[in-house]
Design a protein around this nucleic acid. Sequence first.
DNA 1: TTGCCTCTGTTAAGTTTTTCACAGCACAAA
DNA 2: TTTGTGCTGTGAAAAACTTAACAGAGGCAA
Lengths: 208, 208
Amino acid sequence: MRRDNISMAVIRRMPKYYRYLDELHQNGVDKISSRALAEQMGLTASQIRQDFNCFGGFGQQGYGYHVETLRNEIASIIGIDRKHNAIILGVGNIGRALIRNFQFSQCGFSLLAAFDADAAMAGDVINKVPVLHIDELERFCKENRVEIAILTIPSKYAQTMAAKLTELGIKGLWNFTNVELKVCEDVIVEDVHFSDSMMTLCYRISEE
Amino acid sequence: MRRDNISMAVIRRMPKYYRYLDELHQNGVDKISSRALAEQMGLTASQIRQDFNCFGGFGQQGYGYHVETLRNEIASIIGIDRKHNAIILGVGNIGRALIRNFQFSQCGFSLLAAFDADAAMAGDVINKVPVLHIDELERFCKENRVEIAILTIPSKYAQTMAAKLTELGIKGLWNFTNVELKVCEDVIVEDVHFSDSMMTLCYRISEE
DNA sequence: TTGCCTCTGTTAAGTTTTTCACAGCACAAA
DNA sequence: TTTGTGCTGTGAAAAACTTAACAGAGGCAA
């Protein structure tokens, strides 16, 4: 399974494949052809075969793809079959929403703790996740192998916090602030820019 | 200003341009060259010039771009200088987070009302936005020119609700559920798939 | 077993997107 | 005014990405 030089375009389709295959599997579907999957997903069969081939190809000629096998292969490619430790910074509305509702384990993560600058929250437990004061961040990161941090703090603190987390050896940041973070290049930043998404929608509904 | 056949790749960069230009403007910067902007944004100067040229080109040879003018042109292209009426469906954690924190007006929208199936919430007002019972949706849409709906409801209701909203003449859906919505093609769906984003991060931190 | 049909992996063609290169305008300095 | 530098708009080249096409493997029925 060669996973070098895989283009971002392909990578960003993998979670979607996973989602569809997982649903098919749960509906008891055993096998599926690239054509059938393409139709459901709104892609072309060629693209699907091409995509899977980036990782070696998991189908069988004349048969198609075995849904469960393919799903598991994709899970393994993405890495969600392993557990990566995560922490969340900022227990405001969005932070709380993620802690309560987001299925971290289904995305390969384990949410170890939440941090907030508000001392009044320290000691709380939300959805089994302990809330700690931000002053404990450094100690916590040193004691636990934290791989990613989720930024749901106010924008003005984002860059400073990103720098601190970089120092503490974090590998990835899931950034919900509307700030473009500058970090050294071995730290991965995945942005969730609500406003960009909303503005795109704004443009698209205005077209005729 | 020709805005037909603009590729999605270009469109998705426009909000980012807007963000940077707005910040430059607020910092008192008057003019900027494509090269300087490229450096800040992590793009190439060529791409920036190419992008702006899709809409006619707003710069001046030998000078560069006038920040405020360019920002306003982009705002007008995206459509955030107009006001589009929006409603939000589902006042759970994410819904509440958006109502409280998201700057709708800065993205060209005006959030008229929130809807929830929980009758106990009806009559509440969150951040000046009235919460109505879902039964009032139809009446409300008929009385107000609602252009987009934000889906922050449980996934299992998403498809049904999308169909209903389509009937009511909605133009766009901002979809926070992890369901792939099937709607007729003149309705625009803009997905915010947290899990796709998180899985992509998962993949990327695993690479070496 | 044979023959037919389906479907993948893979190479090639086509399309889109990005980058390069440069003519020519604008401003500043002399 | 003239000269030089900086910068855009634009057409062409390069790269990336998607779609098409097809050989051949495998299933299935007779």
